[in-house]
Amino acid sequence: MIELTIFTPTYNRAYILPKLFDSLLAQSNKNFEWLIVDDGSSDNTKEIIQNFQSKANFKITSIYQQNQGKHVAINTALQNINTSYFVTVDSDDYLKNNAISIIYEKLATIKDSKTIIGLASPIEMINNEGNTIFSNKILKSEIISSQIEMAYKYNVIAEFSLILKTSVAKQYPYPIFPGEKFIVESVISNRMNNNFKLLHITSSIIIGEYRIDGLTAQIKKILANNPKGASLAYYEKMNNSNIPFTNRKSFAKNYWDYESLNNKNFLLKLKKINSNRLKIYILFYFINRIIKKTLS
């Protein structure tokens, strides 16, 4: 019985998809299916996928939707995934040769847990020359924790591949704002953190390539073009009491900047900050900014 879906959202990435496909072909364990959600590509993605389907010795399903953004593609995928677990593998990433075997080996250790909803594997990042930017060496042993705990308790700041229980992920669809095509994925993982944990493993199962046409390289511009989603992400982080206050101060300033692009009412913006201490900080922050501007 197939228990794992490899899900790939893609948009005009026909030129790079074959590398991911080849990494799936190379897996010794073929107990998976591949779901591709094409987010309105205008290149030859459709033909490339059809070619994959003619060659693959595993199931490939392709869904086309009008261009709406990766988060909507994830929502679409979750409406169509029927396996117990899934992992998102971006179109510019690819799997290590033993990835599927590692996933099943580690899932067996948590299958009976009601609070551990999946695995987190550190992504091994490489640059355009193939040199490693980040590897799994920062994680010395397996840790059961939320991603917030990993960042602020264990001081592990890394990008992880998440292998999640589909039934749980379906309960957390991404919010959609008309006219916006992006929201950071941490919005959902942070919401899950309130109730669930992940087994963070030391093995990297995915290699990610940093590309100048990728989301990471353009994140500031993307957030500015999608201010409602950006504001929501920082709003939830600044009001999360599990995050240290020092970090929440930074999130509050980011929230204010993006919220201000759609909401000019000072009091309404201030009201969304739950902590009185954080409200006082923001007030003093703006007073100091006004004073500095006046004196300059």
Rank of each mutant, 00 (worst) to 15 (best):
I183S: 04
N97Q: 15
I81A: 06
P18M: 05
I201P: 03
I6A: 02
K106G: 13
A99Y: 00
M1C: 15
G208M: 08
Y94E: 07
E149D: 09
K170M: 08
P173W: 03
S141T: 08
R277Q: 13
E47V: 14
T5F: 11
A233Y: 06
F182H: 01
V184W: 05
I290G: 00
Y64W: 14
Y258K: 06
T109I: 08
T45R: 03
P122S: 10
S23T: 08
G40N: 14
V89W: 03
I2C: 03
S275K: 12
I117W: 00
F32S: 04
N263F: 14
N128F: 03
E159I: 12
Y281E: 06
M150D: 04
N190P: 03
K272F: 12
I103T: 04
S141D: 05
D93K: 01
I273M: 09
N288E: 14
D257A: 12
I63E: 06
I148A: 01
Q79R: 13
I100M: 07
F182R: 06
D93M: 10
I110A: 01
N31V: 07
I116H: 03
P227Q: 04
I49N: 02
T216I: 14
F134V: 05
Y154F: 15
N128M: 08
P227R: 05
N195F: 13
N127T: 07
L267Y: 06
I273A: 01
I74G: 00
L223S: 04
Y255I: 10
N254L: 15
W34V: 01
T88R: 00
